[in-house]
């Protein structure tokens, strides 16, 4: 058991070395979220207390999913992915390893955005420790979601297009930049069905001490459960990816 965690760690380190410098991870994972946050700063209204957790959530989400996109779709295409299937480890170990590399990338993407909000906003985060925990949970859930999603894409040339087709609507519908509270009624159920909504609400509570529609106990629990479910789903998909 412990052995499998350690090996998942080796997979993550290997992935990180291999893919962090690739254009796909850099542009969509690191540069985009930061530039996006900067853009809000210069706009009228600026980077508000409400927006800050959304920006952090976005960075974690884009950073981690970009890494999985690279490390899985690319490896599957050139055949390196199957090397992992030859080691004496379980499918869970592989999906955990892939999620961990995404996790590292997600955290790195969030650092510049987090620093920006800390510098720009007058109020410090409401609950620092909870914020750290929720950042970890959000990154974890985004990572396993990204790993799962990566197995549905075959062609590395299309991966960022497909990922953005999923990520951009989520960005607008998940309480990240547009509050659920001002959405038209018919969009609310969709927002409540998207995992990113829960992650963002969890972060928002830790950062501002308030939430829009989902109470922290629920948003945190749901985020964690989503993370675990996608991890298990990813293992299952890896198993089924065999011809």
């Amino acid at each position: 058991m412990l052995d499998e965690f350690v090996k998942a760690g080796y997979i993550a380190l290997k992935d990180f070395r291999e893919y962090y410098m690739k254009p796909g991870s850099l542009s969509w994972g690191i540069i985009f979220p930061f530039v996006f946050a900067l853009a809000f700063m210069t706009k009228r209204g600026g980077l508000t207390e409400w927006l800050a957790p959304g920006m952090i959530s976005l960075a974690l989400f884009f950073g981690s999913t970009s890494m999985s996109a690279m490390s899985i779709v690319f490896e599957r295409r050139i055949g390196s992915f199957e090397r992992l299937l030859l080691f004496p480890v379980s499918y869970n170990c592989i999906s955990l390893g892939k999620s961990l590399s995404s996790f590292i990338m997600g955290l790195i993407s969030a650092v510049p955005v987090l620093l920006l909000t800390l510098i720009v906003l007058p109020e410090p985060p409401a609950y620092l420790l909870l914020l750290a925990v929720n950042i970890a949970i959000t990154t974890f859930a985004s990572s396993t979601f990204g790993v799962f999603l990566s197995f549905l894409v075959k062609d590395p040339a299309q991966v960022m297009i497909v990922f953005n087709l999923v990520r951009f609507p989520m960005m607008f519908l998940s309480d990240v930049i547009i509050p659920v509270t001002i959405m038209p009624q018919y969009l609310v159920p969709i927002a409540l069905a998207l995992p990113l909504t829960y992650m963002t609400e969890a972060l928002r509570f830790a950062y501002t001490g308030t939430y829009d529609v989902i109470p922290p106990a629920i948003s945190i629990t749901v985020s964690l459960v989503i993370g675990v479910l996608f991890l298990l789903a990813a293992s299952e998909v890896i198993k089924r990816s065999k011809p």
């Binding site: 080796y10 290997k14 291999e18 390196s80 199957e82 090397r83 992992l84 080691f87």
Partner: peptide, 21 residues
Amino acid sequence: SNLYSELTCLQNLIFSAAMYG
């Protein structure tokens, strides 16, 4: 030949050894 392209020869072998326990 499907080893990891950004890893050196030594790193590739050590990764493999680690994964095999």
